[in-house]
Structure formats: C-alpha cells, structure tokens
Amino acid sequence: MSVRVDGDVIHLAGRCRAEDAELLIVALQEHPGAAIDLSATQRLHLAVLQVLLAARPPVLGIPDSEFLAQHVVDLMQ
C-alpha cells in the first residue's frame, strides 16, 4: 500500500507506481487540505508527481532517494 491516509496526512511510502496516481487523486479529494508525507518515499512515478504538482498540497519529510530529495521535493514547494 503506497498511498495511506492517516488523519490529515497522506503518506506516500515505498515505490509509488503509475496506478497510485488515481488513488492519490481520490485521497486528496476526500481529504482536502491534507499534507503529503514523503519521508518514506523511495520512488515516485511521474504520474504521481503530476498529481502533486497539480494539487499543490503541503509537503512533509525528505525522501530517502537522493534524486527525489535533491531535485524533486523542491518542485513541490
């Protein structure tokens, strides 16, 4: 389970695949204003990133992946 909702935080954990994009849209629609926790994210599919860039939720945590931490998290600020 890559997309997990915990109160006002949506956790994206492990390897997020293309299919997770649809789940993320639903989660964001059901929890407007929820923040995204990326601290356990190992990989982020572009399909998921597109949803985050469109929805612009607040972002928490720094992913393990060096590439994501250095170049992708900044894009969502």
Binding site: A21, E22, Q29, L46, L49, Q50, A54
Partner: peptide, 17 residues
C-alpha cells in the same frame, strides 16, 4: 498550466521535464 484535481487524467502524461 496544470489541470485542477477534478480535471486531471492520471493515465495521461501531461508533463515536460
């Protein structure tokens, strides 16, 4: 510009990197 959450199609790539 990015689509709104309601308009977004999660199966189509709409990004340029």
């Amino acid at each position: 510009s990015w689509p709104t959450l309601a308009e977004i199609d999660p199966f189509v790539c709409t990004s340029i990197i």
